[in-house]
Amino acid sequence: MNLLKLLDSMCPDTTNAEEKDRFYSRREAFRQFGDMSKKMALAAVPVSLLSALPNVAKADTDSLIGVLNYALTLEHLEYNYYQMGLDSGVIDTAERPIFQKIRDHELAHVNFLTEVISNVLMGTPVAEPSFDFTAGGNFMPFDDYPTFLALAQAFEDTGVRAYKGQAGNVMESDVVLTAALSIHSVEARHASMVRRLRTKKGQDMTKGWITGNDYGTLPAAAAGIYAGEENVSHAGVNVVNLTGIDQDAVSEGWDEPLTMEQTLGIASLFLSS
């Protein structure tokens, strides 16, 4: 994944043959630059080169920026949550490597999305919001480890659903789609790990995958995070009827999306006013 690949995903915003030629030749120049410096870090791409990016269809770009800013908001939330958890000392020593790894990924996602929005799509990344992880004094995640783990599960499962819900909105850019998918599966790995950890510690009976719309021992407010996960019909095929496999197992086999509105409704509980 790199900026040069992103260029390849862009189409010229013109029907004029001469302008198309210019688009492709400029893109090829970028490609050759990339070939000379394959090991160049993402952040090291000179701004002067980036500012000369070929024109792309503005509507497409605005739409991509909107989706990526939405993703960036969620990544800010997750990164802040894990960093504060690690700083607070609430996490059992033996399990810190798990949350250090998750924190590292969320920070990498923040940096990656910020870079793509600002230096590739020439947009403005959203500012980091202020968070209230007590949700108005209801939770004490940095004083109580089970609460910390419960909210971590809620954030990761929400993240998986949120990215999934946007796949269709970025599919016009192959590279943005592939990047989003590559973040999406990382969030799913996090979710599986946190879910199973809670069960190993006797705090829940949840598995790495989501059974029906069960939110286990999470607070009732988490019901919205799992609403719809009980679906067993895909593309008009009821997979329980098709296979005779039990409803629980079939529901586990497919994760479901959330819309931007649903996700922001969940996330807004943790934004400070």
Partner: peptide
Amino acid sequence: SGDLLLIAGKIVSVEARHAAA
């Protein structure tokens, strides 16, 4: 197809959950 992409997305995250476990 965006519909097929969504279905693939529904499955791939479950595969990732498996892989992590």
